[in-house]
Simulated assay, not measured.
Amino acid sequence: MEQHKVWYLKLLLERRKESSVERCVATIRQLEEKARKCYAEDIQLDEDEFVQMLILDGCFIIEFLHKFQHTECRDEDDLIFQYGHIQIQLLLDLMVFENQIPFFIIHCLFNMIKISDGDNINYLISPLLQNGIFPVHDLPEVPIHGHHLLGIVHDIQCSSFAKILSHLQSGNTDNMANVNSAVELKEAGISFKKSEDISSFHIEFNKKAMIIPEWEISDSTESLFRNLMAYEYYLTGSPQKYVTDYVFFMHCLVHSPEDAKLLRRCGIISNFLGSDEMVFHVIHKLGKNIIISDEFSYSNIFKIVNHHCGRRRNRWTAVLRQKYFNSPWALISVFAAITLLVLAIIQATFAILSYCNDLKMGI
């Protein structure tokens, strides 16, 4: 890959009809100290090595994302675009928390080596927003002051939900009990519906129905969500962890492959893994040992759902469904018993009426 980065840098320079990288070096050298402060640990590289790393990585990201969208710009001998799985893996690598470089470096290089007048920074990073988390249909304005590519993708994915949440009464986790699994909630009379809301993480509970956006689960889901959650853990100054809260919610709903199957049949989960058991394992692993927000995004929904399930009538309904309506044969047996009971009551009623009539007739 290091050789590939050098090759991509040369292609960019050739396209710009520049014979030297000195202009980029001079500009990035001015940002070197600012870039170092973006890293949590000391960078064990001297000034020249660090500037070289920023230029090579930044130009590679720009050239790769450009070629990804413009097939006519791809070279025939470029191995990256000869194999589809390499492109997918590179898109995932760009979302790895440890692989990030400051976004202002990418933005600066992009403006210096702009490939064509029609390209802009919004269009450049659009492939990262069509990554199977929750595809963004209307490309929003990229926040150029974002930390890095992972942070920008996170902020765009969560922005619409953050606006919705700001208008709702926030809750906390004090005395909050987890909701039951999807199958148990269904037995308690709660249905599940696919949401048509444009917000990725907006979950509603309305008229005994849990309304949840569609979640595409594929081979890349675990990696993407783990890195988004890692980014949230390192965020300061924000009490909300939108992705972490969402994963915790889904982890509560999916306790078994049967829960995954139920949500899949309702259109809430799109399964690209092959089996409901694999979906269960992915959600189970994502939800282990995570810490939700102090102001949990779904605390009010948890309280409303638990209140519904705690009502005596709903508990009795759940018990009846679990014990007597959990299979066709049990259902048939119940109806048969009810039919026999009704017939017995009718027979007893007629016998009593006949006896009373005989008494009146003096028989």
Rank of each mutant, 00 (worst) to 15 (best):
M112F: 07
H145D: 10
D174W: 14
N122S: 14
G151M: 04
G151H: 13
T173E: 09
I115T: 00
Y123A: 09
N175W: 12
E184N: 07
I156F: 03
F192A: 04
N180A: 05
T173L: 15
D174M: 15
L165M: 07
D155G: 04
I156L: 13
S116Y: 01
I115N: 00
K186Q: 11
S116K: 04
I133H: 08
A162F: 10
E141H: 04
K193T: 12
I144H: 06
P143Q: 02
L165W: 11
G132C: 10
F110A: 04
I105K: 03
S126K: 13
L129T: 10
C108S: 14
F110Y: 14
I198D: 15
F103P: 05
N175I: 07
E196L: 15
N131K: 05
H137P: 01
L149M: 08
D117T: 03
Q169Y: 10
I164K: 13
P135L: 11
N172E: 05
H137C: 07
I133C: 12
I125Q: 00
P127V: 02
H107W: 14
S159L: 03
I106L: 15
I115E: 00
D197Y: 03
A182W: 06
L168H: 11
L128H: 00
Y123K: 12
H167D: 11
I190K: 01
S191N: 08
V179Y: 02
K193W: 11
I125W: 10
A188I: 00
S181T: 01
L149P: 03
Y123W: 13
H154L: 10
D138G: 03
I198K: 14
L109F: 05
L150T: 08
I156H: 02
H107F: 15
N180D: 09
S126R: 11
G189F: 00
A177D: 11
S170Q: 06
H147M: 04
H148D: 15
S116A: 05
G146Q: 08
L149D: 04
Q169D: 12
Q169M: 04
S195L: 11
N175L: 13
V183D: 00
I121H: 02
P135Y: 09
N178P: 13
N180M: 07
D119E: 09
A188Q: 00
G118F: 14
S170V: 03
I164E: 12
N178W: 10
V136R: 10
E184M: 10
T173C: 13
S166M: 08
N180E: 06
L139N: 04
I115Q: 00
N111G: 10
L124F: 06
F103T: 05
D138Y: 09
G118T: 12
I133M: 13
H137R: 09
I133E: 07
I156N: 01
C108K: 15
F161R: 03
I144R: 11
I152W: 09
K163L: 08
V153W: 08
L150P: 07
L165S: 07
N180F: 02
K114Q: 14
I133R: 10
L109E: 02
I113W: 01
F104Q: 09
L185C: 05
F134A: 11
F110K: 02
G146T: 12
L139H: 04
D174E: 15
F161Y: 15
K114F: 07
N172D: 14
L165G: 00
